[in-house]
């Protein structure tokens, strides 16, 4: 598993963009939005859903040790 993933990373990182300027443009424009969505918003959504589930179960079953 380690070897194919490493190889894939190497290939993709070469295909990523043609040069350094391209990488910086990429980092500047759309990457931050994408990362913020994936790593900040999605976890928060996860947390919220889990919280809702927990509260609902609490109300439903009157069982605090969920």
């Amino acid at each position: 598993m380690v070897v194919p993933m490493g190889a894939l990373i190497a290939i993709v990182s070469i295909l990523n963009s043609e040069d350094l300027i391209g990488i910086f443009r990429f980092l500047k424009n759309y990457y931050p939005l994408y990362v913020t969505f994936v790593c900040l918003i999605l976890p928060l959504v996860l947390l919220m859903i889990s919280q809702i589930k927990k509260t609902r179960e609490k109300v439903k079953g009157r069982n605090p040790n969920v």
Binding site: I9, A10, S13, L20, I23, V38
Partner: peptide, 23 residues
């Protein structure tokens, strides 16, 4: 599906940082 999105991101981040080092 959500895990797949995360996974794609991890992958992306790894490629960017290693390419950054190479550059």
């Amino acid at each position: 599906l959500v895990v797949f999105i995360f996974l794609f991101y991890f992958f992306h981040e790894a490629t960017i940082s290693i390419r950054g080092l190479g550059e």
